[in-house]
Amino acid sequence: MSYRLRIEPSGHEMDIAANETILEAALRHGYTLPYSCRSGTCATCKGKILSGSVDYGEVDAKMLTDAEMEAGYALFCQATPLTDLSIEAKEVGAAAGIQIKTLPSRVARIVDLAPEVRALFLQIPSSQEFHFLPGQYIDILLKDGSRRGFSLANIPNSEGLLELHIKHVPGGQFTGHVFSGMKEKDILRFEGPLGTFFIREEFPERPLLMAATGTGFAPIKGMLQQLFTKGEQREIHLYWGVRYAPEFYYQELLQEWQSAYPNFHFTPIVSRPDAAWTGRSGYITEAILADFPTPKDFAAYLCGHPDMVSDLSQRLQQAGLDSNYIFSDAFVFAKAKNP
């Protein structure tokens, strides 16, 4: 059984199957709505049901409250139709022409970046084209049918290489293999590109505020490479938070960027500093709001731990930054990913 789905304000209409989420239907028809985790745990895809009714699916109560459901809101990555639907959502035009593919890849290089972080460089077959926007992610497809999502940490290149930053998760099936058994020339299958975390071109006058925790630096790195390649002149403020100082990586590259681009400002922050750490300590949310108590003029890009992403987004809005200028990618635990 199928229903009709209409997206406002664009007026795009399409069929949607009874067991298909709103997001899946939109993507199938070539219309990109804001989304990230696809598992109901980040709220990037939250939008309003203008008419019709839905099965809300499995959602985290923190991401979609009872009051929000009563007000007509749903998570489009989870909600499936019970009737014909009309929804309100801002389509993301920049990703509309990018095809989501399932491709094989070969592990070209494995590089240790930090004590518990490795970079995987995946080689795409030369016969395949893979277009993506810096900041998007791919899902590694495992043999048992599960998948693991990792952000792309580079810009598109003629070599067909994709860079991923993998943090070792104790007991993690895939990350454990990356750190103990994976070898160069191994074959991995993936699906992508996915997500709508990338630089928006609609408001080029706004300075950029970027915040990352842990390997949330990965998509930010790709975004920065894109900006610098294009000769970006706006002020760019990057805050990167880790627990311990040795968890920082790519420090030489960041120093090079600071020297080469006077408009780039980098602030590293350690939440559990030792006596040797002389930089700023604490949490990046507090540091950002201390430095920019009235952030209303920024475009903000937040990536990393879900608590940081949620808290900083709320605090920025409370301080005057319109939510239309806040873009995020919350890293959720692999078990929450759709199979």
Rank of each mutant, 00 (worst) to 15 (best):
L161G: 03
A212C: 13
R109Q: 11
F179G: 13
A119I: 01
L209S: 05
F150T: 04
I110R: 10
K167T: 08
G172L: 06
R189S: 11
G214L: 00
H131I: 09
L103N: 14
K143E: 11
K143T: 12
K167D: 13
L188H: 07
G181Q: 11
M223G: 04
A218Y: 01
A108F: 12
L103E: 13
M223L: 12
T175L: 12
I166M: 04
G93T: 11
E129G: 03
E116I: 02
A114C: 01
E201S: 13
N154L: 01
R118P: 00
K221W: 11
I199E: 01
K183T: 10
M210R: 13
Q136T: 10
K221V: 00
Q136D: 09
H177V: 04
P193T: 14
K185M: 07
F130W: 12
A212L: 09
G195V: 12
L188D: 08
R206T: 04
S151K: 08
F179R: 10
L164N: 06
L120A: 07
T175R: 09
I138C: 05
Q123C: 02
T102S: 10
Y137H: 12
A89S: 13
F174N: 06
P193R: 14
F198P: 00
V92E: 05
H168Q: 14
S105I: 07
D139R: 04
G171V: 07
R118F: 00
P170V: 14
T196L: 07
N157G: 09
P170K: 11
M182N: 11
S126H: 15
F130C: 13
L227W: 03
V111Q: 12
L224K: 05
R109F: 12
G214Y: 00
E202P: 11
R118S: 07
K90E: 15
E184Q: 14
S126W: 10
I199D: 00
L113R: 06
E116H: 07
N154F: 02
T175I: 09
P115I: 09
D112Q: 13
A95F: 09
E159R: 15
F150A: 06
K185S: 09
L122T: 11
G181Y: 03
F179L: 10
I138K: 03
P115E: 11
P219R: 03
Q225S: 11
A218S: 08
R118A: 10
R118Y: 01
V111A: 04
E116K: 09
Y137Q: 05
M182T: 12
